[in-house]
């Protein structure tokens, strides 16, 4: 999938830029985007190391087990045949709690760990499992209680009530998550039936 997106975007862009006379912009982007990506990776690395370290401490202290037991009822419904005492489920719970608290930088490392562990538990394959899909979709629809970045920028631009958007933000993400997850569930169920 990524090969297609990558190739189509670049080929379309170069053609478009030639027709549009924007070729110097594309040339600059080709030279500079690599640096930007490494800057981002380094930026992420700092936060990921800090949270990876803190969460390992939390794990050893038994905090992650506590959080997992709170998510168990919901997790069993969302993810088919998930082993709620396995490493994957643990990482998934931590990812969701970090997202809810608005700690995006902390959520990513758990998300990646969860994907790795899911692959181990469900067997390596070149095709995404139903649980991988649901979990990724949960993460593409931002589920947060406190939209910090949006509120901060509103404040910076002189908003009188930077936080008044909170209820709309929460409701909007809940609606989007429900639609996305329901759709994923329906398609997964349909494809299982077809296999039988």
């Amino acid at each position: 999938m990524l090969s297609k997106i990558f190739s189509v975007l670049i080929i379309a862009s170069v053609l478009f830029a030639i027709l549009n006379g924007n070729i110097s912009g594309v040339s600059n982007a080709l030279l500079e985007e690599g640096n930007g990506a490494i800057e981002l990776a380094l930026y992420l690395m700092g936060g990921m190391c800090v949270w990876g370290g803190l969460m390992r401490v939390a794990d050893k202290a038994g905090i992650t087990d506590l959080i997992c037991s709170m998510f168990k009822p919901l997790g069993k419904r969302l993810f088919r045949r998930i082993n709620t005492s396995g490493k994957a489920f643990k990482a998934m719970c931590m990812n969701i709690s970090a997202n809810l608290l608005g700690l995006g930088n902390a959520a990513t490392p758990f998300g990646l760990e969860a994907m790795k562990e899911l692959e181990k538990e469900e067997g390596e394959s070149d095709t995404a499992s139903d649980n991988m899909i649901i979990f990724t979709v949960l993460n593409t629809a931002s589920i947060t209680i406190i939209p910090t970045t949006a509120a901060m920028l509103r404040l910076k631009h002189g908003s009188e009530k930077p936080m008044e958007i909170f209820p709309a933000v929460i409701l909007n993400s809940v609606i989007a998550v429900v639609i996305a997850v329901t759709l994923a569930k329906i398609i997964s169920a349909a494809s299982r039936r077809r296999k039988k």
């Binding site: 999938m1 994907m115 692959e119 070149d126 993460n139 398609i187």
Partner: peptide
């Protein structure tokens, strides 16, 4: 997320995520 796995076919992941968006 999928870059840490061996998965090549993401099935309906993109469709559902974009539906949510």
């Amino acid at each position: 997320y999928f870059s840490v796995t061996r998965v090549k076919k993401i099935r309906h992941t993109l469709l559902c995520a974009l539906a949510g968006d």
